[in-house]
């Protein structure tokens, strides 16, 4: 059955079971998001995709569309809040974009541009996070992890491997890998895994590929994230 709801005044069709963000992107409307990926079960944790449904804030990646919903997304209030969330993610980790291999291909960076984030605003936490360079092909730079769990879902649901997981609680939440040593080299991870492809930021990086494409000629250098299709 097909029905519609409105998103910032525009009529959006949807089919039963679709979430707001799925229906919106099918209709070509961009809603900022970081932990959502069309190929995986929604997580609902980053909250970047928050919209107002009939006046109430809710994450559009987990909320099912319903006929007649009135959804607001591109309002000054909501974008201010989304910008604050990106600022939080920047200060929580260590993001030195100019020296990052992901710069220009990074969804956090591109989303921050999209939202007009001009400064981190908050004091940096400067957490102490080690880098895992044990694997022959892949480097893990945890400094940039935004805990979106996409690698967790990809490894579990697509690769059938459970290479990644989240541990800790609260501000100490962190990514772990499936090895007694805690090292990626001791897991069954491989570059061919789906999990090697999904990180929206610069944590899971292929070694010896540094700056193959120069900064300035990368994905989000060519077109803003709001006009770029989903595959990463």
């Amino acid at each position: 059955m097909s029905h519609t709801f409105t998103l910032d005044g525009k009529t959006i069709p949807f089919v039963d079971g679709q979430t707001i963000i799925q229906a919106a992107s099918a209709a070509g409307v961009f809603i900022p998001h970081l932990c959502y990926h069309p190929e995986f079960k929604a997580h609902g944790s980053c909250k970047l995709c928050t919209v107002k449904v009939n006046g109430r804030h809710t994450a559009s990646c987990t909320m099912r569309a319903a006929a007649g919903m009135v959804v607001e997304s591109e309002t000054e209030e909501i974008n201010d809040e989304r910008r604050a969330l990106t600022q939080m993610l920047f200060v929580e980790g260590n993001h030195f974009c100019p020296s990052c291999e992901k710069s220009g291909n990074c969804q956090l960076q591109a989303t921050a541009y999209h939202l007009g984030m001009m400064s981190p605003h908050y004091d940096h936490f400067f957490p102490n996070r080690a880098v895992d360079a044990s694997h022959p092909e892949v480097l893990l730079d945890f400094n940039r992890c935004i805990l979106c769990s996409l690698c967790v879902r990809a490894s579990r649901d697509v690769d059938g491997k459970n290479v990644f997981g989240l541990s800790g609680r609260g501000i100490k939440t962190h990514l772990i890998v499936n090895a007694k040593s805690g090292q990626l080299a001791d897991t069954d991870f491989s570059l061919a895994d789906k999990a090697a492809q999904v990180c929206p930021v610069g944590v899971i990086l292929q070694k010896r590929q540094g700056f193959a494409v120069p900064i300035g000629a990368r994905k989000f250098d060519k077109a803003p994230i709001s006009e770029t299709t989903e595959e990463r």
């Binding site: 980053c46 939080m88 609260g170």
Partner: peptide, 21 residues
């Protein structure tokens, strides 16, 4: 609250730390 935040969502995980600071 900062100690007990589960850490799942960005606003609470980072926000309770900012508030504590």
């Amino acid at each position: 609250f900062q100690h007990e935040s589960c850490g799942f969502c960005t606003p609470c995980r980072v926000g309770t730390s900012l508030l504590k600071n």
